[in-house]
Design a binder for these strands. Structure first.
Ligand SMILES: [Mn+2]
Ligand SMILES: [Mn+2]
Ligand SMILES: [Zn+2]
Ligand SMILES: [Zn+2]
Lengths: 143, 143
DNA sequence: GTCCTTATTGTAACTTGTTGCAATAAGAAA
DNA sequence: TTTCTTATTGCAACAAGTTACAATAAGGAC
């Protein structure tokens, strides 16, 4: 799976979507960051590259790219979205107290997904889930 | 597990927190609804009961009640939070296309949680997770 | 009941996210 | 290259959510 901005850009065009300067810049920003970015963080960096750009363009493009599978979103504990170019399928475990986040491989979720699909008839499409808990350091402090 | 507003109210006081009219009214609203409510929905209903109440009070109390385990929150696909008084431990499966949501019992998630806890040293505290996918009706239409 | 302490509230200003619509520019066609 | 179509953008106004701080009221002591 190649997930460079260049590769994603041609995917976008192959699907018949327009490759705007804004869209390409957002892909570059996400790629360079390597991790998760909030829409505000994307906007701040994008504003440097393309001074005229506005917030609605950022929100609309992040949602557009996510809807078509070019990037992934995950919910934070506070109910916001963060975006990322996912190169290896993974999920997250975040400490409710200190925020420490670790990743775990998608394969660990597959048995559960298989069972849920069998039970419910749904097709599970989630590839970037965040679970909440307490890290080893904070475990003693609270429930 | 008794989860009536009256019972939750005494729990709040037993923990040394103050039982304000606003706090009690929010519990009643969530209890009467029976399902998930957004902060805005809670505010609209609360405003009828206690005309002077403001949005920050709603957001602060929903977060307060959640933090101390009196109510539960779950993330929607659009990255917002919804709140509920959870009487039986359950999770959700939501269709990305039509929004159809079904519940499944907590016990199905326990084997995964046990394995993650063992692998990572984290203590998983999540009791109200929403997974995304495609319902049987919408399954054919998109990935 | 009155008094006291301070957790909780309302206010005002702010940040973050969304929507309708006219102006623009991506990409196809000539 | 120039022209054409329309997806995408910027703009303006709005909705949702957060914060600092002074005013209020919950609940314990008397
Ligand atoms: Mn990730
Ligand atoms: Mn629920
Ligand atoms: Zn921690
Ligand atoms: Zn559906």
């Amino acid at each position: 799976m190649t997930c460079t901005p260049t590769h994603l850009a041609s995917q976008i065009q192959e699907h018949g979507f327009r490759l705007t300067r804004q869209r390409l810049a957002i892909l570059n920003i996400l790629y360079d960051s390597g991790g998760h970015l909030t829409p505000t963080e994307v906007f701040q960096r994008l504003h440097v590259l393309l001074p005229g750009v506005t917030e609605p363009t950022v929100y609309r493009n992040l949602d557009f790219l996510r809807q078509h599978g070019f990037i992934h979103a995950t919910s934070t504990p506070s109910g916001r979205l963060e975006y990322q170019i996912v190169t290896h399928s993974h999920h997250h475990l975040t400490c409710k107290i200190c925020g420490a986040t670790i990743e775990f491989e998608d394969e660990h979720l597959q048995p559960l997904f298989a069972r849920l699909e069998e039970m419910t008839g749904y097709h599970l499409s989630e590839h970037h889930v965040t679970f909440m808990g307490f890290c080893p350091q904070c475990k003693s402090k609270g429930e």
